[in-house]
């Protein structure tokens, strides 16, 4: 398979264009799930899809090491390249490395000013200008609505997409009106797109349910399947 076919056939395609076929330049997205269901894997696939479409991404990893994050990319790309028999995979992989930057933060020190300072360092000196930010490991349980609104404002100022991951807990049954579980139930209005990973015990794999999408790309209620082993989105 060629790179352009890989892009065209990606099940995530339903999320990247609005009803008129225009790409979404700004969006705050959320992938929420209980621990261990594959949030990082989904975020990495969103990032890889964005990179393949010639965008630059920064993967902000909170509380995780750089190497560990890198391994996620290596493994998922390898799975995708093998499954799709991608031609010239080594060159594509190099392109991915050039369009991806990983930034790690300590859990306690992550906030908008710090992130903005480090981003500005890159943008103002024309070192790297991201089109998409992946924020993995953000602590929604302790975050305030203001803090999140602040990050949304950063997204608007810098004109990019931001995708978050959030951990929900089985014992916390609070949900928002549209079905977004705690701890994001009372901030769901700040996101344009929200997806939830849920185990499908009947079919033995996990599902990616789209709970909300105000960008006009996809109807809420749409479901994508995940490969039970590789966690790759199958459509």
């Amino acid at each position: 398979m060629l790179k352009k076919d890989l892009i065209a056939k990606n099940p995530l395609r339903i999320l990247t264009q609005d009803a008129k076929g225009n790409p979404i330049a700004q969006r705050m997205g959320l992938v929420i799930a209980r621990a261990g269901l594959g949030k990082t894997a989904i975020l990495v696939q969103i990032a890889l899809d964005s990179i393949l479409r010639d965008n630059k991404i920064i993967h902000v990893s909170i509380g995780q090491s750089l190497d560990k994050t890198r391994v996620w990319y290596d493994d998922i790309f390898k799975d995708i390249a093998t499954a799709s028999q991608l031609e010239n995979a080594a060159a594509v992989e190099e392109e991915i490395m050039r369009h991806r930057m990983i930034m790690t933060f300590n859990v306690s020190s992550f906030n908008r000013p710090k992130l903005e300072e480090r981003l500005n360092d890159l943008v103002q000196q024309d070192v790297y200008r991201p089109d998409c930010l992946i924020i993995d490991g953000f602590d929604f349980a302790t975050a305030t609505r203001e803090g999140l609104a602040d990050l949304r404002e950063l997204m608007e100022v810098m004109g990019m997409n931001i995708w978050f991951s959030a951990v929900s807990h089985r014992e916390d049954d609070r949900v928002s009106a549209i079905g977004v579980p705690a701890p994001c139930h009372d901030v769901d209005d700040l996101f344009d797109t929200i997806m939830q990973i849920q185990p499908d015990t009947e079919h033995g794999h996990n599902k990616l349910n789209i709970l909300k999408d105000s960008t006009g790309c996809v109807a809420p209620g749409t479901t994508l399947n995940l490969d039970p082993v590789s966690l790759i989105i199958q459509g």
């Binding site: 750089l66 994050t69 930057m101 933060f105």
Partner: peptide
Amino acid sequence: NQRRGMIIGTSE
């Protein structure tokens, strides 16, 4: 970047 380097990432 000037040295044809590929930045993997930055850690705090």
